[in-house]
Nucleic acid binder design. Structure first.
Lengths: 173, 173
DNA sequence: CCCGAGTAGATGATACGTCAACTTGATACT
DNA sequence: AGTATCAAGTTGACGTATCATCTACTCGGG
């Protein structure tokens, strides 16, 4: 994977007023694309091998498990997952069909709905979690030095902040 | 996002023999999940705003543009993208329908197929590339110090290597 | 009380990704 | 030649993600 990000047949100067990426930057960006594509696939496969959960299933169950009674309002859940509400709705429907969660009406708000983890769901995540965590360790956290883990945290926080302000109406670049 | 990765109602010790993540590790892992989920969404939105290309469309066109005549054998293209062949086949079909690429039979190998970028496809990527690159800069490369970019490259390379050996039949942990 | 604006969530259409067949042509071995 | 095997690519089914749209409810004035 040593090719350039753009090498149109002609000269790059055919597109003037444009800063392209130098070689080092291209390498880092390619590496990002590579890892961010393959890591979730590896985690997903790992989960599938040890449980009937997908990565999104797992994320949902983690959120629910973290809250008292294993229940959360749909919007709160969506926000915790950084998902769109419609995505959550679709996903919960599928998980409900498999018995991992149920939906319950909300008393104080007639529009609202609770998403509740079932016993089946609890058993599923408790069975899946150990290997999942150890895969995360093996592929990422234990692969890096403590200093690298710290650096990575700082880097991701910085990028995360950019993403915040990018979706923010202020500073649309 | 200051919650723990796992906080079952009971004590963590109900699942013994398991190393969980400490707080710092959880933070880093959460940050990874957060950024790796939101960055592609931001890039995708950006592309949609300036062109009719999706992120995968863009990736395909980049690969094709990097090669003479803008043509590549399907397998080579799949490998360059790190995609499964079937995924490529589906995607090329959709792109073909929109006139971005065409498929051509291969003379030397009766099974093979070329994927060829059309003029429309070329125009599309040339229109989309400048803003896309500048968004990548804005959100990532220019947000970090040169040292951080180097660090990130090292970190990603390390993880990439783990991913390689994870899918490798040898060392299945 | 009623009306309009906003909110919570669900739904349908479409695009995307994966897996498991399947088809067809290349290769190798007899 | 004949057959087994493998490689290239396609297809169909299904799960997943996004967008636009819809329904039902809440709330804050008139």
């Amino acid at each position: 994977m040593t090719c350039q990000l753009f090498r149109y047949s002609g000269d790059v100067d055919t597109l003037p007023h444009q800063r392209w990426l130098d070689q080092d930057q291209q390498d880092v960006w390619r590496a990002w694309l590579d890892v961010s594509a393959r890591l979730p696939v590896a985690l997903h496969r790992d989960l599938q091998a040890n449980s009937d959960l997908s990565l999104p299933d797992f994320d949902v169950l983690v959120q629910l498990s973290e809250h008292p009674d294993g229940r959360l309002r749909a919007s709160a859940l969506a926000q915790g997952l950084q998902w769109e509400r419609s995505r959550l709705s679709h996903h919960v429907r599928r998980m409900e069909r498999r018995g991992l969660v149920t939906r319950e009406e909300c008393d104080d708000d007639g529009r609202g709905a609770w998403v509740v983890v079932t016993d089946t769901g609890r058993r599923a995540i408790e069975a899946a979690a150990p290997t999942h965590v150890s895969t995360v360790r093996h592929l990422v956290l234990d692969a890096l030095t403590p200093a690298q883990v710290r650096d990575l945290g700082d880097i991701l926080t910085t990028i995360g902040a950019r993403l915040d302000s990018a979706s923010d109406p202020k500073d649309p670049r």
